[in-house]
Write a protein that binds this DNA or RNA. Structure first.
Lengths: 206, 206
DNA sequence: GTCTATAGGCAGATAGAC
DNA sequence: GTCTATCTGCCTATAGAC
């Protein structure tokens, strides 16, 4: 059975997709290479023809998974939408369905803690995707007429609110609490984005 | 060599302290029972005289560690301090030294992701401590004259900002970025607490 | 490139002497 | 209660046939 060069890269991509889904859902240590390869419809022996180690796969899976997740979420809130497509993206990010792991969840939130103290490769991948998210949020603030420094501060706080909100919602063992907490983040996030009256729901931050 | 009843509970506490420190720093899977027992100056064989399983130890370590961490942080910002001791506590929580793991770090932030999808025991422990933190923040808002519902929303968002801020700062591979992000959270957290002019540092949100 | 088989190591849990 | 020794199973990584 011959193998075309593009067939290999397709297989590689299948492994990567399987890895992104599994790692994001369960964390690095609770996923075995056997699980990943099974998800890619292969056996574990074939792994090392595509990646040098589990750690390397993890780093690539984070990069690939986060890009895919953010792009999809951005696409869902289409560029051709109303006044603030980014505000809608933030709301979608903080939706309970995302915290439950539906619709290609974001490794940034699902793996925050899992990444700490891990090899340089992994943390670099995480950092790069995080910077990308912050940049998107920051541009939105600058376009709304805010000073560069202030826009960056708001963007950083908003990114933390998004990631932290989903992460804590997932950690907590009480659906009602999780939803209340996500709602609070959506409101606070809306305020931070300056979406103002059109999104806020009757809060009064004094 | 005889053993008094209180000597056993002292030993148990040593194990618990060792476990809290190690789990918080490295996460559940990267810590072995051998590590924990070594930290308590015992050998691994003695473990099961005190706890039924590693998971049970983890749950207790989270509860004990978080209580200890929050109490200590609250104590550091003494009850006899200026107008808003809680505002000071929030600032201390979001200090880079905390994110670096100094001064008995908070499992709530260091283990957010590590706890997801784990046994009921573990998530219950996490949830209970989280509720405790939110309650403290919420009372502060109510005492400041805010409506109950609004106070709870603000408290939830603030808790997420604290936990998420420290977690992301730890995940990221860039000290400058980590500090900028923590600073943004401190400012945003100060605003959320209504600490206003006395803590804010020249930001203009609007 | 993919398979089966296995090397090699590690860690949770248990047994039994003291 | 604490120790040493061991059982047991799992997982990363490699070897070698196809």
């Amino acid at each position: 059975m011959p193998w075309s060069p593009e067939q290999k890269s397709q297989t590689r991509q299948r492994i990567l997709d399987s890895a992104a889904a599994l790692f994001t859902a369960h964390g690095y240590d609770r996923v075995t290479l056997g699980d990943v390869m099974r998800g890619a419809r292969l056996t574990h022996g074939a792994f090392y023809a595509h990646f040098p180690s589990k750690q390397a796969l993890y780093a690539e899976a984070i990069a690939s998974g986060a890009r895919h997740s953010l792009q999809q979420r951005a696409a869902l809130c289409g560029a051709a939408q109303e006044p603030w497509p980014i505000a809608r993206m933030v709301q979608a990010y903080l939706d309970p369905s995302h915290a439950r792991g539906e619709q290609s969840p974001c490794p940034l939130a699902f793996l925050v803690t899992d990444v700490a103290n891990r090899e340089a490769q992994v943390r670099e991948a995480y950092t790069e995707v995080f910077q990308r998210l912050v940049a998107v949020l920051e541009r939105q603030r600058r376009n709304a007429g805010h000073a560069t420094e202030s826009a960056r501060q708001d963007a950083l706080a908003l990114a933390v609110l998004m990631i932290g909100g989903v992460a804590v919602a997932r950690a907590v063992d009480d659906d009602g609490l999780a939803e209340a907490l996500l709602a609070a983040c959506r409101i606070q996030g809306g305020a931070l984005l300056g979406a103002g009256e059109s999104i806020r729901a009757g809060v009064d931050p004094a």
